[in-house]
Amino acid sequence: MHKPTNNGAWLLVVPVVLLVAFNAILPLMAVVNYSVQDIFGPGQAYWVGTEWYREVLGDKRLHEALWRQFLFSGMVLLIEIPLGVLIALAMPRKGWAVSLVLVVLALPLLIPWNVIGTIWIIFTRPDIGLMGYSLNSLGIAFDHTASPLDAWITLMLMEVWHWTPLVVLLAYAGLKAIPEAYYQAAAIDGASAWKVFRYIQLPKMRGVLTIAVLLRFMDSFLIYAEPFVLTGGGPGNATTFPSIYLVKVALGQFDLGPAGAFSVIYFLIVLLFSWLFYQVLQNVGRGGAR
């Protein structure tokens, strides 16, 4: 393998490394430090070892929040990735309509996350919201503040509306990068639309879809602002995800030790699944070679 002879280029990476160190690695180290101590205030910390980890691993409410989170992230991936690819395939490739569709699709991505929650609160209100009022007028009792199922439906709709455009934009970029010669060769061979998708478009989108799956998994697994604004974790605990529970524990109860321990576990789960997704998406259909 050819190796670069000028290693001076590594110096260009130093600013990024320093930035990541300060905004990610140092806070992560602090969280690990908190997770093995009982913190009462600045300078008042007492070593407890792995006690918080044992407590957190046996906390049923956290287990429930985690399973809820897996269900939510699984549904997000199952809906958003195929839907995003379908929309990207249906999008125009040339002409003025491309810019128009791209701008319209990108709009939800430009809205602040807490505002998204507020928009959907109003949209689904049974008295004044377009969706809530329409459904109730049709005789469907829809109220996301009272029914866990309605809360989940609203949350999923909001999430899909908010983030599918990201998958669309990535998939569209992947599709646009496919040289025309591939399609010409497929046409000569008389390949069907499905075969073109299966053997040309899908493999060529591997890179962007890997990024889409990783981003959507990590973002959805760490979701906080939207459900916090929309449901506050309710009704009951129906939409209490680990992030919401963590904030309650860390900031509401100031239990920094258990919150730190669960944050470490939370981080490890995201790390493991991101790595697994990356490996699967990079290796599928390649006989295991990287």
């Binding site: 602090a30 690990v32 430090n33 093995v36 913190i39 600045p42 300078g43 910390a45 070593w47």
Partner: peptide, 14 residues
């Protein structure tokens, strides 16, 4: 770095 609440075992670990 006092805000990071360092301990010897975690320092050795890192």
């Amino acid at each position: 770095f006092a805000w990071m609440a360092w301990t010897w075992p975690t320092a050795i670990f890192f």
